[in-house]
Simulated assay, not measured.
Amino acid sequence: MIEYKPAVIADIPRLWALRTRAVRLTCATHYSSEQIDVWSESAVPQSYTQLVVAQCAVLAEEDDQLLGYAILDRQNGEVVAIFVEPHQHGRGIGKQLMRRLEAMAVIEHFTRLHLFSSLNAADFYRAMGFIALREEAYGHPSGISLRSLYMEKTLAGQAR
């Protein structure tokens, strides 16, 4: 059975390793090998530690195996990350992680969520109710620029 729980600092290396596998395997259909190399080799941003400490990250585990994780910046309503182990796609893990971020956002009284979606993940976010507002270059912390979609979602029952 899949368990969803808050991430802790000790989880960060596992989260980053999953993210790196996901970038290498799932983003290659939309980005060049050079971009994938730089993107996947980048170091864990300091913000991950801050967001995990602030209880903004949730992970999915089954039999002590990390299946996915998601992070919401509770200061501004930005979905910072959702990554699912590539061989676990199709099990609804990403949907459950997003629902947990939405619940966090409601607690924080956000009326909308926003994110920068990689091109390969846009269909997932659309299925979750996000609308693409524009395509733009995302300045990745590694120094590369990645084509992305800026997307938003109004939270049900939260619009004023």
Rank of each mutant, 00 (worst) to 15 (best):
V84A: 05
H87E: 09
R19D: 04
I82Y: 07
S145Q: 15
A137R: 13
L66W: 04
A60K: 05
E152F: 04
V53L: 01
A137H: 09
V58E: 04
Y69W: 15
D63N: 15
Y150D: 02
Q88P: 07
G157A: 04
A122L: 05
E34W: 06
I131A: 13
G139D: 12
V53Y: 00
C56M: 00
A57N: 07
D73S: 01
E85V: 08
W39F: 12
A60E: 02
V23F: 09
R21P: 04
S148K: 03
P13C: 05
L146F: 10
Y48D: 03
A54W: 00
D73G: 04
E3S: 12
I36Y: 11
T154W: 12
W39V: 10
H87P: 04
A57Y: 04
A81P: 08
I107N: 11
A127Q: 14
A156L: 10
S118A: 15
L119V: 15
E136T: 14
I9Y: 11
V58N: 00
P6I: 00
R126A: 03
V23G: 07
A137L: 10
E108H: 15
V38W: 12
V23L: 14
V44M: 02
T49Q: 07
A121H: 06
L72D: 01
S40D: 06
I82V: 14
E135K: 14
Y69D: 01
H30G: 05
R160Y: 12
D64P: 08
A103T: 13
A57M: 08
G94K: 02
V8T: 15
G94I: 12
D11I: 03
Q35D: 15
E3F: 07
A10W: 02
L119S: 09
G90W: 03
H109V: 11
V80E: 01
T49K: 09
Y31F: 14
L66D: 03
E85W: 09
S42R: 11
L101M: 09
Q35T: 12
F130V: 06
C56L: 00
R21D: 13
I9F: 08
D37G: 10
N120F: 05
A43R: 13
T29K: 13
S145G: 13
A132W: 09
G157W: 10
V79S: 08
A122I: 11
P86C: 11
Q55F: 00
P13K: 12
E135N: 14
A10P: 07
R19N: 09
L15I: 10
L25C: 02
S40C: 05
R14V: 03
S117W: 02
V38K: 11
G90K: 10
Q158I: 08
Y69E: 00
E62T: 07
A127M: 11
Q158M: 15
P13E: 03
R24V: 09
V84W: 01
G129R: 09
L67Y: 12
Q46I: 08
V44F: 06
G94T: 06
W16R: 11
T154N: 08
S117R: 09
F83Q: 07
Q65E: 15
A10H: 06
E3C: 09
L101D: 01
I12G: 01
